[in-house]
Amino acid sequence: MKKIRLLLVDDESDFLSVYTRRFARRNVDVSTAATGKQAIEAVKSTRFDAVVLDVMMPGMSGIETLKKIKAIAPDIPVIILTGHANSEALIQGMGGGAFDYMLKPVGTDELYFKVLDAIKNRLVESD
């Protein structure tokens, strides 16, 4: 099966390194971005299968980043994953086309399967 290309966007370096390692074991090709700006650059240059996006980041917020990613590549599924339990981010994120909104802490399996769900669901998006 083709490797999944995943972009993880989070300002927490520990999170990025831990999940990069864990996803690599599941045959996922992970790229990382520590800011919204970096994420947008990455999306411009690479065709990702999915993006996992933090909400609270220095500089551009996750919601703003989501909007820009969707403007560049509307069909890339974006999963919001945040440690800030905030209903506004849920409303704005889902309203802005996120595939789902998840709260940290999240198990690697749970996130991995969510990514798989999101990728599969792209077929419906194009229905």
């Binding site: 769900d117 599969k120 077929l123």
Partner: peptide, 30 residues
């Protein structure tokens, strides 16, 4: 999650020449 993984795996299998409508149907099931 195992549930959906299993289904995702199933659906990701080659569909043996199924047409677009079948693909879309499977996606709708998903």
């Amino acid at each position: 999650q195992a549930i959906f993984n299993a289904i995702s795996r199933f659906i990701s299998k080659p569909t043996d020449g199924k047409d677009d409508s079948s693909e879309r149907f499977l996606a709708r099931c998903d």
